[in-house]
């Protein structure tokens, strides 16, 4: 009885090992199962989802106009003080003073891509871009000014 149990133990052990070996041999011989993405080579075919949160950008149209009113809703929504909005007073054609955006300072190095600023924006002036290669040689390059030089607020956006 003892001997039979001993032999059974040996054979069931060997069988369980053989099952594992068969599975790994399958993968060794079936190279179509390989899932490696050869990243820097596949940049062209790499497709990120539209919602991917890579960095905050400001949308500009062809007339170099954006929709940011400088209301600082995003600045208040941001948990890490990533966004700093500097405003100035423009003179409207009617001769009135109006608050407008001067600089939209965005600290990418502080950003955690939580998306709260995008949700907070009342005029959809900013959105998340699908970039992800953020490495630079100097930290100061990560502090960005999102509104392009010479851009204005689009007419009709309040």
């Amino acid at each position: 009885m003892f001997i039979i149990k001993y032999i059974k133990e040996v054979f069931s052990g060997l069988k369980s090992l053989a099952v594992g070996l068969r599975r790994t041999l399958y993968y060794f011989t079936h190279h179509k199962e390989i899932i490696t993405e050869q990243y820097p080579d596949n940049r062209e075919t790499l497709k990120l989802s539209d919602r991917f949160k890579g960095e905050v950008v400001m949308l500009h149209d062809e007339n170099n106009e954006h929709a940011c009113t400088g209301c600082t809703a995003c600045e208040l929504a941001c948990p890490n003080a990533t966004i700093k909005i500097i405003t100035q007073f423009d003179i409207t054609p009617e001769g009135k003073k109006k608050k407008a955006l001067d600089k939209f300072v965005y600290h990418l190095e502080l950003c955690t891509m939580c998306n709260l600023c995008i949700v907070a924006c009342p005029t959809d002036a900013i959105k998340m871009a699908q970039t992800f290669e953020h490495s630079v040689y100097d930290r100061s390059e990560l502090t960005k000014i999102l509104n392009k030089p010479g851009s204005h607020i689009r007419a009709g956006v309040e």
């Binding site: 990120l48 989802s49 919602r51 991917f52 998306n115 709260l116 998340m128």
Partner: peptide, 12 residues
């Protein structure tokens, strides 16, 4: 997760 939430690990 990336498609719906916009991030892979810390979705928020």
């Amino acid at each position: 997760m990336e498609e719906t939430c916009g991030a892979r690990l810390t979705m928020n």
